[in-house]
Amino acid sequence: MGVSLRKIIGLAGLFCLLTFAGLNTTFAAEKAGGEGEAFSPGDMITHHITDDYVWHFFDGHYGTLYLPVILYTDNGLEVFSSSNFYDEHHEKVAYGNYMIDHGHIKTLDGASVLDFSITKNVASMLVSIFLMLLVFLSIAKTYKKNPGEAPRGMQSFFEPIILFIKDEIAIPNIGEKKYKKFLPFLLTLFFFIWFNNLLGLMPGGANLTGNISVTFVLAFIVLIVTLASSGKAYWQHIFAMPGVPKPILLILIPIELIGILTKPFSLMVRLFANITAGHIIILSLLSLIFIFESVWIAPASVAFSIFMNFLELFVALLQAYIFTLLSAMYFGAAVEEAHH
């Protein structure tokens, strides 16, 4: 059974309305919580797009998840709840020899500390990994149970996407002979980015793929896979390009070597910038309601915010596709055989 377009549009609309409701509730709570203080959109936006040691789902004590803090110091391993860094008014306070300063835990006496804490982004990543395992292990089990039968349920939704990545991304860019060893990685890469892009748009969601550390690691893994898979022809086109005079090689070789690093760098920055920009735009539009404090601003602000939410649903899929496509192109260039 296929998934009808009407269902997809309905779910997307509900998704956007829930996102707006969650953001609006949070804004109202922040506005009401700071009596006598001017609303600061910059502080609010920064708070929502950066990592944290607590995870806010909605206002109130029961809407906050205090995450575990794991530190390694000269005294050994220390594990405690991040709730110790906040008082009853949710103001930051020092705990023992530690304090949170600009999103990082530091010691009061200046001693070194290694931070292995489960932050909001780490917790969100674990949630996305659990969802991916739940979905794809269930699909694999169904395939084994009903081999050769028409897809049903989640199969009917994910199978066209998997076949699209195989037939339109992996095979054309890597080749019919060598695509199979890269396909599992490309599928994992695509769905990991897509799932986390969508989770970041949900009320209370973490901005995981808008964290440059995360996009750096993804791009670095792509670089390692590319270099590890590269053959003789790949390096020959860098250090001894056929038909190019040797004096010209002195110019082209440094450019090609720099190009090896700029390709993953572009992957890192593109994903980070697009996802973060979308969050900032939506939050900025909703901030206009509290900046102007006018009922006339609210309809336009809400309308544009809902439109941006729909657009971000498309961007979430598009950025996963672009990252996967470019990765496949880099792999294809690495394993391409020499042409004589």
Results as ranks from 00 to 15, higher is better:
S83C: 07
I306Y: 03
S327K: 03
Y234G: 12
G60I: 10
S124H: 08
F220E: 10
I193T: 10
L267Q: 00
G175Q: 12
I171A: 05
L126A: 13
Y66F: 14
L326I: 15
E159V: 13
E37Q: 14
V315T: 08
N211M: 02
A12F: 12
I169V: 14
K31D: 11
L267R: 03
A111Y: 06
F85G: 01
I255A: 14
L67N: 00
W296L: 14
Y321F: 15
Q236G: 15
H90W: 11
P254G: 07
V225K: 10
S124R: 02
M329W: 08
L257Q: 12
S40Y: 05
M308G: 02
I275R: 02
F195K: 00
G259W: 04
E30L: 10
P254V: 08
A38N: 11
I238C: 01
F20D: 08
L71Y: 03
P245G: 07
I224H: 05
V225D: 10
Y143C: 05
I174N: 04
A277M: 10
K31S: 09
I238P: 01
I306E: 05
F27P: 00
G259A: 07
Q155S: 09
E78D: 12
M241V: 11
E35A: 12
L223F: 14
T46Y: 09
V113W: 01
I9H: 08
